[in-house]
Design a protein around this nucleic acid. Sequence first.
DNA 1: CTAAGTGCAAATGTTTTGCAGAATC
DNA 2: GATTCTGCAAAACATTTGCACTTAG
Lengths: 166, 166
Amino acid sequence: MQAALANVSVAVSPAEKYREYLATKGLRLTRERSIIVEEVFAYHEHFDAEQLISRLAQKTDGRRVSRSTIYRSLLQLEEASLIRKVARQEDRDVFEHDYGYPQHDHLICRKCGTLTEFQADIIARSLEEVASQHGFRMDGHRLEVTGLCNECCRPPASRPKKLNLL
Amino acid sequence: MQAALANVSVAVSPAEKYREYLATKGLRLTRERSIIVEEVFAYHEHFDAEQLISRLAQKTDGRRVSRSTIYRSLLQLEEASLIRKVARQEDRDVFEHDYGYPQHDHLICRKCGTLTEFQADIIARSLEEVASQHGFRMDGHRLEVTGLCNECCRPPASRPKKLNLL
DNA sequence: CTAAGTGCAAATGTTTTGCAGAATC
DNA sequence: GATTCTGCAAAACATTTGCACTTAG
């Protein structure tokens, strides 16, 4: 029931925070929205809309939610700063938890697509400085570092060239 | 004719570099591709496919190129490291020159959408370090800093709240 | 001649939206 | 009783692709 409360340093559950956000807009935490938040925060992995949709579609109990509602809810969760877009992969927006987890950035393997999180305070600090120099009021950032992950640059055998030309 | 060569520290023109890239694939620098590279490098502003398309559509001379060819060419220019995606705005990929310009990152105003470039060597250096710690072979990064630009946070009059509720 | 290149129109795939009926205050 | 919600199907949109025709080595 109160998932995602155990090993996370938050005072309020994601669902509760969602409820608060909705309240400020005169909206309600419905059964569907509640199912969605809980599913979103049930795992800390990155996900896209389609994955969330199929996770919810597999539920055998009555916890099925329509595609539209899921998309609508994702927008709200983002507005509420519960989740945020981290990247775009295969034409899909990729989300991650933005609530209850420390700020971090990602190493994105351009071969296998794996997202690896890392933390570097110095970056946030540098950005504060840059922003203030430009009179820019920073409220967040997204940093994607691309390259090859440990796994994918291991076998230096033959370069995997594209096989277009017969 | 040889635009973008004057104030840029490159040995070879973008078109020439494009030609070289194409050559490695057994492809040619056609009239259309040539028109596209030149238009892309005629200005240093950020752009999306649609903008490029309409810029080329306005040409009164025979320099018109089809939408498909432009999209196909953009892919190649990206592959060739002549341009790169910097952001995604209004559901469109935004590109910028990646050739002949120093590495930099962007402040993105979430109100007016302005992209402001900045350079911070310390970030690149930090990333090198982080990458090596993870056995990650970095080949680039994208950093979008979001917030309000100088202009947009100037008038501290009334907070521009969304006018949804009547 | 053969392979690459183009333009067109149609397809794709994600995300959004209009609407009618259901649920909630 | 009015307003918010949902699910459905259709729409919107950027981007990609199949195809027939051109063009260039």
